[in-house]
């Protein structure tokens, strides 16, 4: 079957098997390997991407279901050579170690800050609670997201560029 969708603002159209998972479509068909997968059962959140401005687990979504929708991946976070404040926050606050869960974490964080520009630590923890990081113990991820929130409060930026 043919699927057509916008990925990071680019229109893509491909012939695929109906059973193709969105994560495989993104990684293997489009070559966007910044999205990772970790568990098969939608428990780890490593595969999180946006579909229509909402984080979803792409290992448990069919590419066919995303057809006609807007998809955003980690590759779409940096705009015109400028990192998203969330990406910058993760660098500044050591919010990543191996970097495997990081793309999904950052996309969820971006969605949180778009809805709640001044989250509490507890709200951040709740927002990322469907995503597992095995390296950081989460405190530095919380700090990273707070860093981005603080930066955006000082310098409002255009977000959601996909």
């Amino acid at each position: 079957m043919e699927v057509t969708m916008s990925v990071n603002g680019d229109d893509v159209s491909q012939e695929i098997e109906p059973r193709t998972l969105l994560v495989h479509f993104i990684r293997d068909h489009l070559g966007l390997t910044g999205t990772h997968w970790g568990c098969d059962t939608s428990n780890c959140g490593t595969c999180v991407v946006w579909v229509d401005d909402e984080p979803v687990k792409s290992c448990t979504t069919l590419a066919a279901m995303a057809s006609g929708h807007d998809v955003r991946t980690v590759e779409g976070m940096e705009v015109d050579g400028v990192l998203d404040p969330v990406q910058e926050g993760f660098i500044q606050c050591h919010g990543l170690q191996c970097g495997f869960c990081t793309p999904g974490m950052m996309l969820t964080a971006r969605a949180l800050l778009d809805r709640n520009p001044d989250p509490t630590d507890g709200e951040i923890r709740e927002a990322i609670s469907g995503q597992i990081c095995r390296c950081t113990g989460y405190s530095t991820i919380v700090r990273s997201i707070q860093w981005a929130a603080a930066k955006e409060r000082e310098t409002p930026v255009e977000v959601g560029a996909s």
């Binding site: 991946t73 980690v74 990192l83 990406q87 990543l96």
Partner: peptide, 13 residues
């Protein structure tokens, strides 16, 4: 970090 936050790491898969 600059490559990893951009999704530009290269993992085995």
């Amino acid at each position: 970090d600059p490559r990893l936050v951009r999704g530009r790491g290269q993992f085995c898969d």
